[in-house]
Amino acid sequence: MDFRIFTEPQQGATYDDLLAVAKATEDLGFDAFFRSDHFLAMGDGDGLPGPTDAWLTLAGLARETSRIKLGTLVTSATFRHPGLLAIQVAQVSQMSGGRAELGLGAGWFAREHEAYGVPFPAKRFGLLEEQLEIITGLWGTPVGETYSFDGTHYTLTDSPALPKPVGSVPVIVGGNGPKRTPALAARHATEFNAAFPELDALAPTFARVREACEAIGRDADELTYSTALIMCVGANEAEFVERARAIGREPAELREHGIAGTVDEAVDTLGKIAEQGVERVYLQVMDLSDLDHLDLVAREVVSRS
Rank of each mutant, 00 (worst) to 15 (best):
M1R: 04
T7K: 01
D16G: 06
D17E: 09
V21G: 03
A22C: 09
E26G: 05
L28W: 06
D31M: 02
F33I: 08
R35M: 15
H38V: 08
F39G: 02
L40P: 00
L40V: 02
M42F: 14
D44C: 04
D44F: 13
G45E: 07
G50D: 01
E64F: 09
L70W: 00
G71E: 06
T75Q: 06
S76R: 03
A77M: 02
T78Q: 11
H81D: 14
G83Q: 10
I87G: 07
V89C: 04
V89A: 10
Q94S: 06
S96I: 01
R99N: 05
L104V: 04
L104F: 01
G105Y: 06
A106T: 10
A106G: 03
A106H: 10
R111E: 15
H113S: 11
E114K: 12
P119V: 08
P121D: 06
A122R: 14
G126A: 14
E130G: 02
L132R: 12
I135M: 10
G137R: 02
L138S: 01
G140Y: 01
F149K: 06
Y154M: 00
L156M: 13
L156K: 00
L162S: 15
P163L: 10
K164Y: 08
V169L: 07
P170C: 08
N176Y: 13
K179T: 13
K179S: 06
P182M: 05
A185V: 07
A185K: 03
A186I: 03
A195E: 13
D200G: 12
A201N: 11
L202M: 05
G217W: 07
D219E: 05
D221Q: 14
D221F: 01
E222H: 09
E222R: 13
L223H: 02
Y225F: 12
S226K: 04
L229F: 02
G234Q: 12
N236E: 14
E237N: 09
E239D: 15
E242W: 01
R243M: 05
A244D: 05
I247V: 12
G258A: 08
E265Y: 04
E265T: 02
V267N: 07
V278C: 08
E279G: 13
D290I: 00
L294H: 02
D295W: 08
D295H: 14
L296Y: 03
L296R: 10
R304V: 02
